[in-house]
Amino acid sequence: MPEPHAPTPAGDPTGAPAIELVDVVKRFGATTVLDGLSFAVAKGERVALIGPSGSGKTTILRLLMTLEEADGGFLYVDGEPYTHEVRDGRRVPIPEKRRRRVRRRVGMVFQQFNLFPNMTVLGNIIEAPVHALGLAREEAVARADRLLEQVGMADKRDARPTALSGGQQQRVAIARALAMDPEILLLDEVTSALDPELVVDVLEVLRTLAETTDLTMLIVTHEMQFARDVSHRVLMFDRGRIVEEADPETMFTAPTHVRTQAFLKAVLG
């Protein structure tokens, strides 16, 4: 393992990157999923993570949501240490209280939606703004209505999540994440659990979101066309490493690495 050090933020003249990973190691039992991974995402940048299943893409998002704990290395959000920092030359975990402050800037949309079944659509969206951000209820409701309009779900405001289709649930989940007004949005295979005919609506919502906001986005997806359309940059993962990194145009038309070529051939046919 490399000696812990305080890394300098990656070169961004306007300030620290929105996200930075430095030498991140993650193991599950005997398997090493991420082995000294480093990369940075600039503010407002949309980065797509592609690659075969089990290549560690989802693990990166889960680390950034602190759903998993890294075994080595450092995570930074806006240049601020997130989960671990160096103190007296040693890598020490940062207390939950400080993590929570940073985590508030990060939102996530899950593959399985994870809407709360005991609350209505509106209840799901205002729960965290009211109880985690301390927003007044009326304000939270107004924000929720605006977001429901945006994702095309305004008419389902008072429905139960279980009464909605997967695509509708996912659009609500997107609105729920946006209601926290995050700076960074993590999208974890958000269309993988959906029937093919429901994928389009969800992707449309995300495309519009990408065009109209300057949210920093980290997108794990198997929808190559979507990755190509919305991202500024594509990272190709294989066995926990970035094997190729390029703008979408280059990545999808002229990949250089054999693993990328094989992967794209397999998924695009």
Binding site: L67, G107, L115, A132, L133
Partner: peptide, 27 residues
């Protein structure tokens, strides 16, 4: 209770007491 429910409460920055009382216990 599905682990995704716990994860969603964390992603939404809900506090530990709040997440159990409002989301996990009712389920």
């Amino acid at each position: 209770v599905p682990v995704g429910q716990w994860e969603a409460t964390k992603a939404l920055s809900l506090g530990p007491v709040h997440r159990v009382r409002r989301v996990i216990l009712p389920q």
